[in-house]
């Protein structure tokens, strides 16, 4: 197999590895933590805290 032919397969393989990592970690995270913890982020958090400090 030529060098670049090998590189094509290597690129496919690496893409699959990154993809699999992301998907397995995603599914594991979703299964481990409750939904209300994962989606608990709220906008404007620092603004509220700096206001508290100023008061």
């Amino acid at each position: 197999m030529t060098f670049w032919g090998f590189m094509e397969y290597a690129a496919w393989a690496l893409s699959a590895v990154f993809g699999l990592y992301i998907v397995t970690d995603w599914l594991r995270t979703d299964a481990t933590y409750p939904e209300d913890v994962l989606t608990s982020s709220r906008e404007g958090e620092i603004e509220a805290m700096t206001e508290e400090h100023r008061m």
Binding site: T2, W4, E8, A11, F18, I22, D25
Partner: peptide, 29 residues
């Protein structure tokens, strides 16, 4: 690069396009 370094007539670009997106998505993740 493949063309200039010789040996390949027509490189399949798709695996490299996919790799760029997957790698950077992983990094961001």
């Amino acid at each position: 690069v493949a063309r200039l370094t010789g040996g390949v007539v027509e490189l399949d670009q798709r695996p490299f396009i996919v790799l760029v997106i997957m790698f950077l998505a992983w990094l961001n993740y």
